[in-house]
């Protein structure tokens, strides 16, 4: 059964004036339908305002649908009885690393989640240690988060979610405020969680390079899912993506341009290694 099942999901931000009359309605999600299987690595791409963050907040029951419904691990998020079970099943990491760390010491922050759900003391310590080891931050456990780099803080935030032992982790633009090194560290940690612990990962981003290794990609625009498929299928259509002013990974773009210029490359190249291999093959074959 699908881990996350969204059916005709609609979310409207309603702005009211002082008397409570509706001033304007902004549809952030417009009949979104999708199914996410457990253990997958899913990416959701889109511009600012495409509704991708709103969708993420629905998976975590931080927002509830205006219409339609979303089931997380079989639980309807609109049902208040399940709110906390949903949040425990699907943890969420936010964009700004500073604004999601509650405590002044790393391990106390990681313990915040397990403390909230009432885990007994000795198990909390074990969970915190495991979670910090998973993201490679164990040696910083008694540091102050203020002294860590952005990437390290973000990994602490991931550990904070992992300590609640969720089945799924949603990352809402986790790398948007990080430098390239921090980005690489965070993504490596997330991929490891997916591979080793079989945690379902939903990565929301607007960096195309981060999407390449995922199992399935959704591209959102104006509250709708406007493309979906495996990364290779998505990036095959360079022209369509460009039309909607979405980037493709640099290598893919280069390959696309080369192909347009007459180099007989295959259709969709996602990594640098693939491009090198193909070019070498072509050169050996004497096709240029």
């Amino acid at each position: 059964m699908a881990f996350i099942k969204s059916k005709d999901l609609v979310h409207e931000y309603i702005r009211r004036d002082e008397e409570g009359n509706v001033e304007s309605i902004q549809t952030a999600l417009d009949h979104v339908n999708l199914n996410i299987e457990p253990g997958q690595f899913i990416s959701i791409l889109g511009h600012n305002g495409s509704g991708k963050s709103t969708f993420a907040k629905h998976i975590n029951a931080l927002l509830t649908p205006s219409e339609g419904m979303i089931l997380v691990d079989g639980m309807n998020t609109s049902d208040e009885e399940y709110t906390f079970s949903v949040r425990q099943a699907a943890g969420m990491v936010f964009q700004n690393p500073d604004n999601q760390i509650i405590a002044s010491v790393v391990d106390e922050d990681v313990a915040f989640g397990p403390e909230n759900i009432g885990i007994p003391t000795d198990q909390i310590i074990e969970r915190v240690e495991n979670a910090l080891k998973m993201v490679g931050m164990y040696k910083y456990k008694s540091h102050s988060p203020n002294k860590l780099s952005g990437g390290q803080k973000q990994r602490v935030a991931i550990a904070g979610v992992m300590a609640m032992e969720p089945k799924c982790i949603i990352l809402d633009e986790p790398t948007a405020m990080l430098d390239p090194d921090g980005r690489a560290d965070v993504l490596r940690a997330v991929h490891e969680l997916n591979k080793l612990k079989h945690i379902t990962v939903i990565l929301i981003t607007h960096y195309m390079e981060e999407v390449v290794d995922s199992d399935y990609v959704y591209v959102m625009e104006k509250g709708k899912i406007f493309m979906e498929g495996k990364p290779r299928e998505i990036f095959k259509d360079v022209e369509k993506l460009k039309e909607h002013s979405l980037d493709v990974p640099q290598v893919t773009l280069l390959a696309h341009e080369l192909k347009k210029a007459g180099v007989p490359l295959s259709d969709c190249i996602l990594t640098r290694q693939e491009l090198v291999d193909e070019l070498v093959k072509i050169k050996k074959g004497g096709q240029i």
């Binding site: 907040k57 949040r87 943890g91 969420m92 936010f94 885990i119």
Partner: peptide
């Protein structure tokens, strides 16, 4: 803005007031 973000982050981590909370280091 930070307060708003933080409240989301706390809720996402199942914060629900002091009732039923345990402590890592009581």
């Amino acid at each position: 803005r930070r307060a708003n973000d933080l409240s989301y982050a706390m809720e996402a981590r199942c914060y629900n007031g002091g009732e039923g909370r345990t402590k890592m280091r009581p």
